[in-house]
């Protein structure tokens, strides 16, 4: 709870500061756009957080976005599949990729970093190959309900943000209240002891990669319709790092066994507000990544300082 409080305050301070420096921040258009981005990034960051809690990592997310976007565009605009079929095919396919990652990690016992790094290379390459390295667009058609669901609004609120709230609520219950959630933390902290307690550690760890990919598939569809065209070499490039950053900022430890949904939510919101700040304050956009890196580092340093300070002051209690 402490960690979430810290980052929550940081987020609040940042919002207030940007709002004072540039009132544009609070304009409807900006709020809508920012919350849309928070939604898209938050959903897959939650999946990343789950994987990180089991002590793993998923580097393949960004490339999956590209592959998935390309395939979706081809299915809808070239093959003219009906939108429910195309969507289902893409989602199922991406989840199967996650199942494959889980299999390689838990049964073949390869390291998560290696498996998903290979995924990162492989899916990007595949995306470029099947698209002949050409950008694929969706045009202006709405594909039934698909575009409204992925990129529309519910009242004034962008759909991705609505979906994020639903996903976060469900995942918060799963992670913090369910048996499965407790098992996720247990395998992340001591896989061997978890196994001796009768937990099917392979299933628990493997499923985390599948769930991560399911959430990535949802984000991926939203992202594809947000950009409305998918460039196979640039779409989603290094987005997995945003997910990792959000999770870590939000209190997930890369050693596993730590983290919360609220923290991940705040972490992804913070990252988007930072982006927004760079844009609104007229900081050269080439500095974008540098600002983000610096703030994440500062945030984690402050967190570490507070933690060790709390330890020291507690002693004579």
């Amino acid at each position: 709870m402490k960690k979430e409080l810290g980052i929550g305050i940081l987020l609040l301070v940042l919002c207030v500061a940007v709002a004072i420096l540039n009132p544009q921040f609070l304009s409807t258009a900006n709020l809508q756009n920012t919350s849309r981005l928070v939604g898209m990034f938050g959903i897959f960051s939650i999946g990343m957080g789950l994987v990180i809690i089991t002590g793993g990592i998923d580097l393949s997310v960004g490339s999956v976005f590209a592959l998935q976007g390309i395939v979706l565009a081809i299915l809808l605009t070239r093959a003219h599949w009906p939108w429910p079929a195309a969507t289902a095919a893409v989602v199922v396919g991406v989840v199967l990729l996650g199942v494959g990652h889980g299999f390689l990690i838990t049964v073949v016992r390869l390291q998560p970093f290696i498996v998903t790094l290979c995924g990162l290379l492989f899916y990007r390459g595949l995306a470029r190959f099947i698209s002949n390295d050409e950008t694929r667009g969706f045009g202006t058609s709405s594909f039934g309900l698909l575009r409204p669901l992925a990129a529309g609004k519910l009242g004034p609120v962008p759909m991705p943000f609505v979906v994020l709230l639903v996903v976060a609520a469900v995942m918060a219950v799963v992670l913090h209240r369910s048996v499965y959630g407790r098992y996720l933390y247990a395998v992340g902290r001591n896989e061997e002891a978890a196994r001796f307690s009768g937990i099917n550690t392979r299933l628990v760890i493997g499923s985390a990669y599948a769930v991560s990919m399911l959430l990535a598939a949802i984000s991926g569809i939203q992202l594809a319709f947000y950009t409305n065209s998918v460039s196979p070499s640039g779409h989603g490039l290094s987005y997995e790092l945003y997910g990792i950053a959000a999770a870590v900022l939000g209190g997930c430890s890369l050693r596993g066994g730590e983290g919360s949904i609220l923290g991940i939510l705040l972490g992804s919101a913070l990252l988007q507000v930072l982006q927004n700040l760079v844009n609104l304050l007229g900081i050269p956009s080439s500095l974008n990544l540098a600002v983000m890196g610096a703030v994440i580092l500062a945030g984690i340093c402050v967190d570490q300082l507070l933690a060790s300070r709390a330890k020291r002051t507690r002693k004579p209690a």
């Binding site: 407790r182 933390y185 247990a186 902290r189 001591n190 061997e192 002891a193 196994r195 001796f196």
Partner: peptide, 13 residues
């Protein structure tokens, strides 16, 4: 330490 407990979980957990 290795197989009996998850030492950084609570006694209850």
């Amino acid at each position: 330490r290795r197989t009996g407990l998850i030492v950084d979980m609570t006694v209850r957990q």
